[in-house]
Nucleic acid binder design. Structure first.
Lengths: 352, 352
DNA sequence: ATGAAAGCGCTAACAG
DNA sequence: CTGTTAGCGCTTTCAT
């Protein structure tokens, strides 16, 4: 019933000492089966549900909790299937470590933004920064000041933080090469945000020098690695289908229409595809479209997006492993996951 | 720095007692501005980041954590925009209470299933069961045994649990009446799961008596309230677009094709709509389609689903309020939210 | 306004 | 194998 019953009560009822009773529950020490049963029986009678986690935590100095810091709004983060899949893998692996997952909203604005107090006060043994950590992030600063070990996903890290990321630059290079081989020369790209300021539209040269987020920067660099210089770099403020559609409309209705559009995410690419359909363009007859992430998007039927696949579930598991390593006192490492280009039905030879 | 520095160290450095130092941080007691600054300065010098949450928690008997128990897989739960929006609202309101949100995977199988140990051991002051709680759920049993106050969302509750839900029976009645008024008589329905056994396809009379989940049962009952007896009750194992498409194909390619299909969720309805398009049927010319939830589904463009809108964000906030109430020792209540029918472009007069 | 003392519930040395 | 003894770091009466 009420959580009033303590280990001491159980011990008293069983006629043993508190430490013995503790051993009966934890099993972390020698104890005779007889006393063990005796204690467990007493517990049953008293309705004792096992050691109070708070006492255990204080004593052991560990909260048994991994703080996962997501973007400024859960809704925004979770609208993205990419985040969800990573989070799912992470949750599974964290759970197998016997740890809980504390979800923390963490705005990433540098400067005078108010910081979610939980970042500074919630009990956590390790923190995972799920996306877009920048070196000047106040979240990062607060966690570091607390001495909490940190795992960064797809961002820039300081000394002492673990980093998990994918080969996105290579992935984008593969897409670029694929399109060049198909004869495309007028290639535009739709990018993820450069910064948190919500800009949307073609980026001018000045804007291109202000790319705070690693992901957009690296994926753009990958395209250039292939020798592609995009005719237009169209920035979006988030990875959303409707923003891709807006970008697609703009790019595809311009007089010097590109023959191929590469989006930095599958969601954006889906939007571009919808825009192409809306404008009555044939894909890939009139325009080729490629994305990034390798999501399963049945509603695009009958089209299947050409995309760079990343192992999202594995990524989550790897984050879990990094958490375990940090907890075990091992040195933080950087791990980079491979990606692969999977050609679908949305890319083909450039129109003549 | 390292988390070694304690309040005692700070107190010593500042030349005050521990209790005074505590007051300097909590502000919960009389303290002179001078000593306060002195303590804070000492803390600054020592790199002390404020009271250790673990000590505070043990002393106060509160973990400052709300456990949110979602379905068996985070991926599955979070693929559903409905869950996400509720979770977003909940996270916001929980955060404003200064509480953390612990995500707990909780399989809901009765019987010999292994229970996620976190349900029994993780520190939490209140638990929220996000979906589909059934009275025989082992999760519910474990939490109740621990004496953790419980908020159930859209499920059945026992005595002493708070319940948050929507008027879904009324909502479905509205849809039924809407379709009847349009002249429809052959109406089929695509439902959410009856149970966790993953069944898919038309439900026979026997199956209809085994509806463990409240949502499917209530929404079906609502349709009947309107006087609609569905020609087919097509059950799906989850609220997913592709399952709706499968259901749509089956229903729409049968010889006695219905003139209207009501799905118990917008995702299912979207799938049905895609199936109709695929089969070259005009919507609503040949078939009317309605959903439930009121999601924003831009990729259905140019169609806009006729749907019953539920206030998802508000629901999340209401859950947060229920949490606060339980924490304050108030009596658990049931709160039912209103819904409204919003007619889109996918329903029209029955074909003659 | 400040300090002393008493635990919150538990685990981990260390004796026995 | 079991009991004794110390705390983990903090907050909170209760004196002063």
């Amino acid at each position: 019933m009420s959580a009033r019953t303590t280990l001491a009560d159980v011990a008293a009822a069983a006629g043993v000492s508190v430490s013995t009773a503790s051993l009966a529950f934890s099993g972390a020490g020698p104890i005779s089966p007889a006393t063990r049963t005796k204690v467990l029986e007493a517990a049953g009678t008293l309705g004792y549900q096992g050691p109070n986690p708070l006492g255990r935590q204080l004593r052991s100095g560990r909260a048994g909790i991994v703080g996962v810091v997501v973007g400024d709004s859960l809704r925004r983060s979770f609208r993205d299937p990419v985040s969800i899949q990573v989070l799912d893998g992470l949750a599974t692996s964290i759970e197998s470590l016997g740890l809980g997952l504390l979800l923390v909203r963490g705005s990433d604005e540098p400067g005078a933004e108010e910081l979610n107090p939980l970042v500074a006060t919630a009990a956590m043994d390790v923190a995972v920064l799920l996306w877009g950590a920048t070196t000047d992030s106040p979240v990062l600063a607060a966690l570091r000041a607390r001495g909490v070990p940190i795992v960064v996903v797809e961002g820039r890290v300081g000394e002492g933080d673990a980093l998990i990321r994918i080969q996105d630059r290579t992935g984008m290079r593969l897409i670029g090469e694929h399109l060049l081989a198909l004869g495309h020369r007028r290639i535009a790209t739709v990018t993820l945000p450069f910064d948190r300021d919500g800009r949307e539209g073609p980026a001018d040269p000045a804007r291109l020098t202000h790319m705070r987020y690693e992901i957009a920067r690296r994926r753009l660099a990958g395209l250039r690695d292939a020798g592609v210089e995009p005719t237009v770099v169209y920035e979006t403020p988030a990875s959303l289908v409707e923003l891709g559609t807006a970008a697609g409309r703009a790019l595809l209705s311009s007089p010097d229409r590109p023959t191929a559009i590469v989006a930095q995410s599958d969601l954006l690419a889906s939007g571009v595809l919808l825009a192409a359909r809306e404008l009555g363009l044939s894909v890939p007859g009139d325009v080729s479209i490629a994305g990034f992430d390798g999501l399963d998007l049945p509603w695009l039927h009958p089209d299947v997006l050409t995309s760079v696949h990343q192992p999202l579930q594995t990524k989550g598991e790897l984050i879990g492993r990094a958490v375990a390593d940090l907890l075990a006192g091992k040195k933080p490492r950087t791990r980079t996951l491979d990606v692969s280009l999977v050609v679908g039905t949305t890319t083909g030879p450039a129109p003549v």
